[in-house]
Nucleic acid binder design. Structure first.
Length: 574
RNA sequence: GGGCUCGUAGCUCAGCUUGGACAGAGCGAACGCCUCCUAAGCGUUAGGUCGAGGGUUCGAAUCCCUCCGGGCCCGCCA
């Protein structure tokens, strides 16, 4: 039977059962059955929002389940660039969604304080004559990354003896104790604090810093290694190119070396115990100390092997590690290994995303010739990147001008604080709105846009709504006659507001972080259409006025709650 | 070579999981809308062989196969 005919026939039966939320069912020649929603029923969702604004849209997906999220994890030898920013914002947004859907959350930031990149900085200071103090006005992380790291790497090419020092320095750092290791640790912490300032500025926050050196010194690896041996997951290669190495066999690909023929562990081998720790599959060897207090008044802890408190950071029912998709293969191996040593009942998930690259015109601004290519991969070592602080500062300056032109009476302090919120909003929205498996080609000029599909557009819709409420001089009440809201723009807005919990539920279940951004944008658009067509303050019928004020307020609640999930501040004025 | 992934308007992207009504936004272009709740807004117009071909289906941007093009990954580096 052709669909149109089927629809027509079905409608006959369906009509008899139409009730409650559904007003009518009509066949459409294209083969559809169109149901008409009962708006006076749907508008009761507005009452729900007004009665319980803070909880509106916060769906209980997690039932208190513990989720461990790792993100950021930038090597502590340089400032964050826009590529790292994608990671930070993705991770922090996921944290916010998980938290809002009743998950117990733990956010980790892994600090690779014993890697080669740290050794490079130490060599710069100790053996290549770089001053430890940066020039006045330059952040220490930027100084280390822009100056020391890049230039030391250039020096290696001319001076092989300097390059030789890397291994020695690295070994000293790994062993700890020595004066050089102390120095390295001081430098690392200083860079880390500046990196955290940038992350906090973007309104990200963490629960724990995991220092790689502590993982190495804790002997977690040897314990994990014993487990792997016992379970028969690793074997000592007797011949071939990997002779003398402990390897792990991976289906459909080359075997991975875990322990080199000289007995040292590879990067993968450090990652396995850490991942197992996250899931609570190995005993927790760490104590925890206060590291810093954060903007949301929470305390950031750090691992320590010295005396400290015992805490429950690990042992997640679910672990989500956010690293770019170049690591997908390794993460999959780790996940497989964990499932074989008792992780099966848990979930170890890698949330990957494509890289951020620089657009041709932005590369040109950095004086980099990329020929006829469309984009350029960033490289910390070569000094090819756009730093997060730079983007935020530039956005801030631009936003400040815009706010000032609209609100000349504002104090400089007010202007600065609003401009900062706008800058963060622009950057966060820009980094989260597209799909994870799409590369972001970062263009500095495009990223400075405050119009169209941007964070400030959302904030603007919110500010407009708050002006209406303020100027009305009335309180929007949940018991208004919402059934009087019968204009198309009103009904469209109601429908959007009502979608929030569905969107949040879906985002939490499928880790579809960007769908919150998409929703917030369509919600803001629905409001702007309403704003354009339906006057609120000029309405003379007091019942209609009350209903519209309720609608405006409910919109504000839905949008503010969405913006909270995105880490964007809802502004009353801008 | 093998694996993963992307390819939709001039540009940046939604839509694809769960196949259906003329494929939607933003930017850019042209033209409009502030005596009226902030014009960071709204509207109109122009712009599309949904990479190509085949298959499944009453119906494919969406599912399957092949191919083409871009990207990433395949270290006793991290």
């Amino acid at each position: 039977m052709p669909p149109p005919k089927m629809a027509a026939e079905l409608v006959g039966h369906i009509r008899k059962r139409v009730e409650g939320p559904v007003l009518a069912a009509d066949p459409h020649p294209a083969g559809y059955i169109n149901f008409k929603v009962n708006y006076s029923w749907l508008s009761q969702t507005l009452r729900k929002a007004l009665e319980n604004p803070d909880q509106y849209g916060h769906y209980d997906v997690g039932r208190g389940q513990h989720v461990v999220i790792e993100h950021t994890s930038v090597n502590p030898n340089k400032a964050l660039h826009v590529g790292h920013v994608r990671n930070v914002i993705l991770g922090d947004t996921l944290y916010r969604i998980m938290k809002a859907t009743n998950h117990r959350t733990t956010v980790l930031n892994y600090v690779d304080d014993s890697g080669l990149q740290v050794a490079d900085i130490v060599i710069g200071f100790k053996f290549a004559g770089f001053q430890v103090e940066p020039p006045a006005g330059q952040k220490f992380d930027q100084y280390c990354g822009d100056e020391v790291y890049v230039k030391v790497n250039q020096l290696y090419e001319k001076d092989p003896q300097l390059a030789e020092k890397r291994k020695l320095v690295l070994r000293e750092i790994e062993e700890g104790k020595s004066e050089l290791a102390e120095f390295a640790s001081k430098i690392t912490l200083r860079v880390l604090k500046e990196q955290l300032n940038t992350c906090w500025r973007m309104k990200a926050r963490y629960d724990l810093l995991n220092f790689e050196s502590h993982i190495v010194l804790s002997k977690m690896w040897s314990r994990a290694f014993e487990i792997l041996k016992k379970e028969g997951l690793v074997k000592l290669e007797q011949e071939g190119k990997n002779k003398g190495c402990w390897i792990i066999e991976v289906a459909d690909e080359e075997n991975k070396v875990l322990v080199r023929s000289d007995g040292t562990a590879t990067y993968m081998a450090k990652d396995i115990p850490y991942a197992a720790w996250k899931l609570g599959l190995v005993e927790d060897p760490f104590s925890y100390r206060d590291f810093a207090s954060q903007w949301d008044s929470s305390i950031l802890f750090a691992t320590t092997l010295d005396a400290g408190a015992k805490k429950q950071f690990s042992g997640g029912h679910r672990v989500i590690t956010i690293i770019d998709s170049r690591q997908t293969r390794l993460q999959r191996i780790i996940s497989t290994v964990l499932s074989k040593i008792g992780g099966a009942k848990h979930e170890y998930q890698h949330l990957g995303y494509e890289a951020v690259t620089l657009s041709a015109s932005t590369a040109k601004m950095l004086n980099i010739d990329i020929g006829d290519r469309q984009f350029m991969h960033m490289s910390g070592r070569k000094g090819i990147y756009v730093s997060a602080d730079f983007v935020l500062d530039t956005l801030h300056a631009k936003a400040k001008e815009e706010v000032k032109s609209r609100n000349p009476e504002f104090s400089d302090e007010q202007l600065g604080s609003i401009a900062e919120q706008i800058a963060i909003s622009a950057l966060r929205y820009n980094m989260i709105k597209q799909d994870l498996d799409k590369m972001i080609t970062f263009d500095i000029n495009e990223s400075l846009s405050l119009e169209g599909d941007t964070g400030p557009y959302l904030q603007y819709a919110y500010a407009r709504s708050q002006r209406i409420l303020e100027k009305s001089g009335m309180e929007a009440k949940p018991d208004a006659r919402f059934d009087l809201l019968i204009q198309p723009e009103e009904q469209f807005l109601i429908k959007e507001i009502a979608k929030l919990d569905m969107v949040v539920e879906d985002a939490a279940k499928s880790l579809a972080v960007k769908s919150i951004a998409r929703y917030a944008a369509s919600l803001a658009t629905a409001f702007n259409l309403f704003y354009e067509k339906v006057p609120v303050l000029r309405e003379s019928d007091p019942e209609k006025l009350a209903a519209r004020l309720g609608l405006v307020k409910a919109f504000g609640i839905a949008l503010r709650n969405s913006l909270d999930l995105l880490g964007i501040t809802a502004l009353n004025k801008m």
